[in-house]
């Protein structure tokens, strides 16, 4: 199909406009389509725009709950409105400032709201040790069930060591 406007290039944009039940069809090449100002040929569509769409609907949920959260991050002064426009947060503290609003959003994007993967050695700190303790407890339980008492005693001591570490 040839572009109806310039008659040279092949038509790649097919526009159907319905105004008051009157159907109007246009077949244009990308170049001519760009010249048309009466419709928005959105080439800037990105994940951030998409995110903004999700945010609008999650906003309604939080309104119902009656959010008491501030609308601005106390550390970087990023406003929630600005985040809704750009899809990007301002600093790591924003995750705390907008916690209530972000939680349902994370569920919507990822299907989950908590991290289960890698934990950094330093920044993970105590949390890493706690996870290790959980891990050892599971091993201890199965050792007891299998009546491997020597191994269980070893595991118990390891857990105690780690617990001391957490408390200090």
């Amino acid at each position: 199909m040839i572009c109806e406007e310039c008659g040279n290039n092949s038509a790649t944009v097919h526009l159907t406009k319905i105004v008051n039940e009157k159907v109007n069809k246009l077949h244009l090449c990308a170049e001519c389509a760009n010249k048309h100002n009466n419709f928005d040929f959105d080439s800037t569509f990105s994940i951030h725009n998409f995110l903004t769409g999700l945010l609008d609907s999650s906003q309604n949920d939080t309104l119902k709950v009656g959010s008491t959260e501030p609308n601005q991050c106390s550390k970087c002064k990023m406003t929630y409105g600005k985040f809704r426009q750009t899809g990007r947060l301002g600093c790591s503290h924003c995750y705390k400032s907008f916690n209530q609003k972000l939680n349902p959003l994370f569920k919507r994007i990822h299907g989950h709201d908590s991290h289960v993967g890698k934990v950094p050695k330093k920044a993970g700190g105590v949390f890493r040790v706690k996870k290790e303790i959980d891990n050892l407890r599971n091993k201890l339980e199965s050792a007891v069930q299998k009546e491997e008492f020597e191994k269980a005693a070893q595991l118990r001591d390891q857990i105690r060591e780690l617990q001391k570490e957490v408390e200090s």
């Binding site: 899809g87 990007r88 994007i109 990822h110 991290h115 993967g117 950094p120």
Partner: peptide
Amino acid sequence: EENLKYAFDEKFGYITSCPTNVG
């Protein structure tokens, strides 16, 4: 990480600018 301190949250994991990368 041995020489840097990463932004990390116990619940959300590694903190990123865009929520589509968090965790």
